[in-house]
């Protein structure tokens, strides 16, 4: 009986220790920013592997999500003969919710897992220790550029997702289902507020970019340096990022759009 309680206590302490290590890693990563700016090529290489390589999946998903939204929205709206509101519906759901959230989920799956696996493997093959031996701070050299790359990429990816989604919705709604072209765009520009909708969506994606990259880097850096440990860390990255994104999204939505 006492053993069970001790196990529970050990598990709780383990979680707290993990949170503490993750929290301490963040200032260490940010401290390397100035050193990174002196060598921008490091950042560009990471922007390539984190941002450019994720662009395709984001573009394709965004277009199809917009197209499906338009199909489903048209089905419901046509029952109230309010097809003119299709543009508002598609744009509002993309800009406020789906753009930032789905982009963050895809980002965690595509870029976050890759970051964790890469850093975990560097640790397992003692490349990080090797850097330290050469008096190069591995956090500044390896983690900082990856952190900023994720932080910069996610808002841009979310914007691409939303923009292509609106265009995909336009293609299905106006092109295939015969909604009036003018109504689609004008209703949208009447109802979508720049500050209330677009900027809040961008703030959401900035927060998600920060959190997703942080989790991925921490899990990689903290992974058990075995092939099994790296695999588990990669899984944890995807699971934790997704849960945190969905939870944070609820809180941010309640703060931004709730009254």
């Amino acid at each position: 009986m006492l053993n069970r309680i001790a196990e529970l206590g050990a598990a709780g302490l383990g979680v707290l220790q993990g949170l503490g290590r993750g929290l301490l890693l963040l200032p260490a990563i940010l401290a390397g920013t100035l050193a990174m700016l002196a060598r921008p090529r490091l950042l560009i290489r990471q922007l390539y592997s984190v941002g450019v390589m994720t662009l395709i999946i984001i573009a394709v998903s965004g277009t199809f999500v917009g197209m499906v939204l338009s199909l489903q929205g048209h089905y419901i709206l046509s029952q109230f003969s309010a097809e003119e509101a299709l543009g508002v519906m598609v744009a509002a759901s993309l800009v406020r919710e789906l753009g930032p959230v789905v982009t963050a989920l895809l980002f965690a799956g595509r870029a976050g897992s890759a970051l964790t696996a890469e850093i975990g493997l560097m640790k397992a093959t003692e490349q990080l220790s090797g850097l330290e031996m050469m008096a190069v701070n591995p956090i500044h050299r390896v983690l900082t550029p990856r952190f900023w790359a994720g932080f910069i990429s996610l808002p841009l990816l979310a914007a691409v997702f939303s923009a292509l989604g609106v265009l995909g919705g336009w293609f299905v709604g106006v092109g295939l289902l015969g909604v009036d072209d003018g109504a689609y765009w004008t209703q949208m520009t009447y109802k979508i507020d720049f500050q209330g909708d677009i900027l809040n969506g961008v703030i959401k994606s900035v927060v998600f970019g920060f959190v997703c990259t942080w989790i991925a880097l921490y899990q990689g850096y903290d992974a058990t340096p075995t092939s099994e440990g790296v695999g588990q860390a990669t899984t944890r990255t995807v699971v934790q990022s997704s849960l945190v994104v969905l939870g944070l999204d609820f809180i941010l939505t309640a703060l931004m759009f709730g009254e």
Binding site: G51, A91, V95, S153, P155, L156, L157, A159, V160, S162, A163, L164, V166, W185, M188, T189, I192, D193, F194, D197, I198, V202
Partner: peptide, 13 residues
Amino acid sequence: GLVALFFLAMNVS
């Protein structure tokens, strides 16, 4: 990315 943001700002909002 920036063009997409600009498009959202000018054409959608």
